[in-house]
């Protein structure tokens, strides 16, 4: 298995969603780390609640007036914090360090507000403010800018959100459930005979290399028999990791796939799995492995599309 441009494009764009300085620190940190692993451009988006439309103009009028008092939109405050955090995560990045946040340098376009950063320094960072429903706004942003991966924090309303995020976001998704930046995770790669497995292996290898995390591949069959497709995919994955000197262990288990994934993952793995190839209507009605796995587990999970 080669790391070909078809599996992982040369230029990648990742999007990290932040909600506040209080809760989004780990998400932003991992977003920054993953972006550096893949040498990707990084967008940081704040999605805030949209004011009731009846009073929208009064809210806007107030915000314009608050600008005169140098009090900025709470979303811009969060983006200002995010830029500062990104600078502390990568102190060696001189270009990033030189960027100063200026709340006057914002531009409204395509139903969002973009913070303008100096092109030569901040060309690889985007700071975006959006207002509205989270999944709708993330989907719009991903479609507009062609992001390859969306990175979001875990949510209290997990079951409902898991379904919408996985079904409707048109990119790969990393959901950082109960993510602890200092914790030493193992990568748990779910392997089957689908096309998405090849891509998952390539993404997993890059992450494992950079973060120095050991890899475990897990293949689950409902019966005791593992067909040649499953066996072949698992062996190919193992060989690929070994060819890159990544520590890898291989597991074959029998049982219900989602329960087995969840039990095996425990609380010290980050799961990587391919997106479902099921018909979207079937996914909506019956769910899919990624949707159910996200709903059942409490560890970070990367779903590759």
């Amino acid at each position: 298995m080669k790391h070909s441009p078809k599996i992982i494009p040369d230029t990648l764009k990742f999007l990290t969603a932040v909600s506040s300085s209080e809760y989004s620190g780990p998400t932003l940190k991992m977003g920054s780390l993953i972006a550096s692993v893949f040498d990707a451009d990084l967008g940081v988006v704040y999605v805030g609640e949209k004011a009731n439309e009846f009073h929208g103009s009064s809210v806007n009028l107030t915000r314009h007036n608050l600008d005169n008092w140098n009090i900025i939109h709470p979303g811009l405050e969060t983006l200002k914090w995010a830029l500062k955090e990104l600078q502390t995560y990568a102190p060696e990045n001189k270009a990033l360090g030189g960027i100063k946040f200026n709340s006057d340098h914002v531009y409204e376009e395509d139903g969002r507000v973009r913070v303008l950063l100096p092109e030569e320094k901040g060309g690889r960072i985007e700071l975006i403010l959006r207002e509205g429903e989270l999944v709708d706004q993330l989907r719009k942003e991903i479609q507009l800018e062609g992001y390859d991966l969306a990175i979001i924090g875990g949510s209290k309303n997990k079951r409902h959100l898991a379904h919408s995020i996985i079904q409707y976001l048109p990119s790969s998704v990393l959901v950082l459930q109960k993510f602890k930046p200092r914790k030493q995770y193992k990568l748990l790669l779910l392997v089957d005979d689908s096309q998405a497995t090849r891509k998952s292996v390539a993404w997993g290898a890059l992450i494992a290399e950079k973060l120095d995390w050991p890899v475990r591949t897990l293949t689950v069959s409902k019966t005791r028999h593992f067909g040649p497709g499953y066996q072949g995919a698992a062996d190919q994955a193992k060989a690929y990791f070994e060819s890159r000197n990544i520590e890898v262990e291989q597991f074959f288990l029998t049982g219900d796939p989602v329960n087995t994934f969840a039990e095996f993952a425990g609380d010290d793995h980050m799961i990587i799995m391919g997106a479902s190839t099921l018909n979207p209507i079937k996914q909506l009605l019956f769910g899919s492995k990624p949707i159910k796995t996200l709903a059942r587990t409490d560890v970070p999970i990367l779903i590759i599309r």
Partner: peptide, 16 residues
Amino acid sequence: TAVAAPACTIIYSSGL
């Protein structure tokens, strides 16, 4: 609720 009166929506929009 924050939706009924414009003044309530305005203070709610502060996020505080």
